[in-house]
C-alpha cells in the first residue's frame, strides 16, 4: 500500500543542515494499522507529511499503490491527496463553519452537488455518532467530539488511507479511548489502512498491528507490535516498552540492585508469558517442584492484538542450584526470563 524507499529529509538550518529523516525504508500493507513512534523531534511528523507530499523529500521516494508520488503532476497529486485522509492533533477544524459544513468541505472543493453532500454528510455524522451536533460550531464541542468531526471530514471522500498525526495527544484518557475504538472500527469495517504517529506507546499497544520506532531521524526498529513488545532489540525501544508496560522498578529497589551475582544475593527477574502461558500457575509450580519462592514485585497482564501477555517482576529465593533448575524449567515452558539484577 505505502512504500517508503530510502527517504531522506534535510532542512537548511542556520547555514547548517538538519537531517530530519535519514534513509528510511518502510512498507505498510493494505488494511494495517501502522504505528510510528518517536519522541518529539525524532522526525515522525516529517515522515507522515512526506506520505502525502505536504513535505517534499530531499532524497528517496514514496509509493502509494506502487505509484511514486513524486512522479505525479499537481493535478494528479490533488487527486491522490483526496484518497488520503489526514487527522491532526489540533483537529484543524474551521471555526467559521458548523460541524456539517466542516465535514462537507472536501466535497465542496471538488464541486459535489448540495443534495448529495447532505446525504453523504448526514450518513457519516450518524456513523461517528454526532448526528445531534450537526449545526454546532466547533467551539461548542469537546476535544473528543472535535476529533470525531475531523475523522468524519477525513472519511467523507472515501479514502484508502488515513494518516493520524498525534490524533489523541490533545485528548483526555476517556476521549482517547473513544477515538482509538473508532479508528479500529474504521480499519475493520471500512478496510482503511491507518498510519498513526504518536509519542505514546500505549496508543500503539492498544490498536496497532505493526510498529516502527524513530529516533533522531533514524528508523531503529520495526516489526509486529507483539514482537517488539515482548522482545525489543535496542536499548531505546526496551526503555519505551518498559515504560509503556509499567514495568519500571521503584527506585528504592533499583538503588539496592547489584549487577553481578554474589553470596547471599538473589536474582530479580522479569518473566514474560505469551498467549496461553499467561494463564499458568507458575509461582506455585516453582515453589512445589523447585522449592524456589517467587517474591512478586510487580505483575501486569496486557492484551496486544488480542493476544494476552503477562509480565511479572519477581525475586527468586532459594538454593543457587534450585534457582538454576527453575531457570531451566522456565525456558522449557517458553517463558522468557531476563535477569535485571541481584539483591
Amino acid at each position: 500500500m505505502i512504500e517508503i524507499k530510502n527517504l531522506t529529509k534535510i532542512y537548511p538550518h542556520q547555514n547548517k543542515e538538519l537531517i530530519a529523516l535519514n534513509d528510511i525504508n518502510l512498507s505498510i500493507a493494505a488494511g494495517e494499522i501502522f504505528g510510528i513512534v518517536g519522541k518529539s523531534g525524532s522526525g515522525k511528523s516529517s515522515l507522515l507529511r512526506c506520505m502525502n507530499l505536504l513535505e517534499q523529500p530531499t532524497h528517496g521516494d514514496v509509493l502509494i499503490h506502487h505509484i511514486s508520488l513524486l512522479s505525479l503532476n499537481a493535478q494528479q497529486l490533488k487527486k491522490q491527496r483526496r484518497e488520503i485522509g489526514v487527522i491532526f492533533q489540533q483537529f484543524n477544524l474551521l471555526e467559521s463553519r458548523t460541524v456539517f459544513e466542516n465535514i462537507a468541505l472536501p466535497l465542496e472543493l471538488v464541486g459535489v452537488e448540495k443534495k448529495q453532500i447532505k446525504q453523504q454528510v448526514d450518513a457519516l455524522l450518524a456513523w461517528v455518532d454526532l448526528a445531534d451536533k450537526t449545526n454546532h460550531y466547533p467551539s461548542a464541542l469537546s476535544g473528543g467530539q472535535k476529533q470525531r468531526v475531523a475523522i468524519a471530514r477525513a472519511l467523507i471522500t472515501h479514502p484508502k488511507i488515513l494518516l493520524c498525526d498525534e490524533a489523541t495527544s490533545a485528548l483526555d484518557p476517556e476521549s482517547t479511548g473513544v477515538i482509538l475504538t473508532l479508528l479500529q472500527k474504521i480499519n475493520q469495517t471500512l478496510g482503511i489502512t491507518i498510519v498513526l504517529i504518536t509519542h505514546e506507546m500505549d496508543v500503539v499497544k492498544r490498536i496497532c498491528h505493526k510498529l516502527a520506532v524513530l529516533d533522531h531521524g533514524v528508523l531503529v526498529e520495526q516489526g509486529k507490535v507483539l514482537e517488539i513488545f515482548t522482545a525489543p532489540k535496542t536499548e531505546i525501544v526496551k526503555r519505551l516498552v518498559t515504560h509503556a508496560l509499567h514495568l519500571e522498578l521503584p527506585t528504592y529497589i533499583t538503588k539496592r540492585l547489584h549487577q553481578t551475582p554474589a553470596l547471599g544475593l538473589y536474582p530479580i527477574v522479569r518473566l514474560t508469558f505469551i498467549g496461553h502461558k499467561a494463564d499458568q500457575a507458575i509461582v506455585t509450580t516453582l515453589l512445589e517442584r523447585f522449592h524456589v519462592a517467587a517474591n512478586i514485585l510487580l505483575a501486569n497482564l496486557e492484551s496486544i492484538n488480542e493476544t494476552s501477555i503477562g509480565f511479572m517482576l519477581c525475586q527468586l529465593r532459594g538454593h543457587a542450584s534450585s534457582i538454576a533448575q527453575a531457570f531451566g524449567f522456565l525456558a522449557q515452558e517458553k517463558i522468557k526470563v531476563e535477569v535485571i539484577g541481584y539483591e
Binding site: L54, K78, R81, I84, F88, R97, L105, P106, L109, V110
Partner: peptide, 23 residues
C-alpha cells in the same frame, strides 16, 4: 494547520483563500 489540512484535502490556492483564509 488549517491551511495544511486544506492542502491535504486536495484544495488549490484560490480555494484556500476563499474557503479557508477569508472565512
Amino acid at each position: 494547520g488549517l491551511i495544511e489540512a486544506a492542502f491535504a484535502m486536495g484544495a488549490h490556492g484560490r480555494q484556500i483563500i476563499f474557503k479557508i483564509l477569508i472565512p
